[in-house]
């Protein structure tokens, strides 16, 4: 009996498994899962494949109609043409014009809207004033109203301000339309931060802006990344506001210009150029996603905890 007690642990050690848990790679279950995933992947990647392949072909090859086949003679000419030579209306300097217009629209819109919304959220949580809840409710209500309802009044307002048709006007529109959802995002994130931290900073003599820049900002990088991604992709991909609020073709953002290139009814349909132009337009949001995907997920999760 005494022996058994002494040997007990060793006996157990011999029986217990060592090393990594063995797995059967090719179980029926796994085949099902990976098979399904592969099919779905193929389904979603096929259009991209077609686009890339077509954009690398010359027009004679495109006319053969083998859309899945890789190019026999690879050429980057369609990309060059899409970027620098394609014509929309009277301008024949390609998408580059639209690209820079979009940059001029997106950068200020993103910066201004995120800054204002984060200060809004911070004030609504930490510096409550009489009626702050009502103010917040009204702001949130704004996100439920369909854009189409506000388009015409907005055009009139911009006209009265003398901003209709200008890039500045469009920046203003994007900033305003981003406000409800961004404020909600920041408010909820700041609400999840410990209140005592804010109190400690006040006892330490920090004011509104000092607390915002020295305490709140450094602690909320994830939510700023979320807001950045939401705004950059949203504003970059916007088509409706670009068409409505820009009156001169030379000021059109990239999306509108892309539409004008692809949908032009004169001349030959240059599918290869269209494909290249489309991919060029989609590149910016794609790059943003790749760079900040990890932070994005973390920020969404953090903001979701408390409402």
């Amino acid at each position: 009996m005494a022996d058994a007690t002494v040997n007990g642990p060793h006996a157990n050690a011999a029986v217990s498994p060592r090393g990594a848990k063995p797995t059967r790679r090719l179980s029926g279950r796994n085949i099902m899962i990976y098979g399904t995933l592969a099919v779905v992947c193929l389904y979603y990647l096929l259009p991209l494949w077609v686009m890339v392949m077509t954009s690398l072909k010359g027009m004679p090859e495109v006319r053969l109609g083998n859309i899945f086949a890789p190019p026999l003679e690879m050429t980057f000419q369609p990309w060059v043409k899409a970027w620098a030579e394609a014509c929309t209306g009277l301008n024949c300097d390609g998408l580059s014009r639209g690209f820079w217009n979009s940059v001029r629209i997106t950068v200020p819109s993103v910066i201004v809207s995120i800054f204002v919304a984060s200060v809004n959220g911070y004030a609504l949580i930490n510096w409550r004033f009489k009626g702050s809840e009502v103010f917040f409710t009204i702001l949130i209500f704004g996100s439920f109203i369909p854009y189409q309802v506000m388009l015409y009044p907005m055009v009139v307002m911009l006209r009265e301000l003398g901003l209709y048709g200008s890039l500045t006007g469009l920046v203003l529109v994007h900033t305003i339309f981003g406000m409800p959802i961004l404020t909600l995002l920041f408010r909820n994130y700041f609400a999840s931060m410990p209140e005592e931290l804010f109190k400690a900073a006040r006892v330490d003599g920090a004011g509104f802006w000092r607390i915002y820049f020295h305490i709140m900002l450094p602690m909320s990088l994830p939510i700023f990344v979320v807001a950045l991604i939401l705004q950059v992709t949203g504003i970059w991909n916007d088509f409706l506001f670009g068409v409505v609020f820009i009156s001169k073709a030379e000021n059109y953002p990239m999306t509108v210009q892309l539409n004008n290139i692809v949908n032009s009814v004169q001349g030959v349909k240059e599918y290869n150029v269209n494909m290249a132009a489309t991919m060029l337009t989609g590149l910016v949001p794609l790059i943003i996603y790749f760079i900040s995907g990890k932070l994005f997920v973390r920020g969404i999760a953090a903001g979701a905890v408390k409402g």
């Binding site: 410990p194 109190k199 006892v203 003599g205």
Partner: peptide, 14 residues
């Protein structure tokens, strides 16, 4: 708060 001549210690350290 900062003009009252007080120092404060919080439960969560803050």
């Amino acid at each position: 708060p900062s003009d009252r001549g007080i120092g404060m210690v919080f439960q969560s350290y803050a």
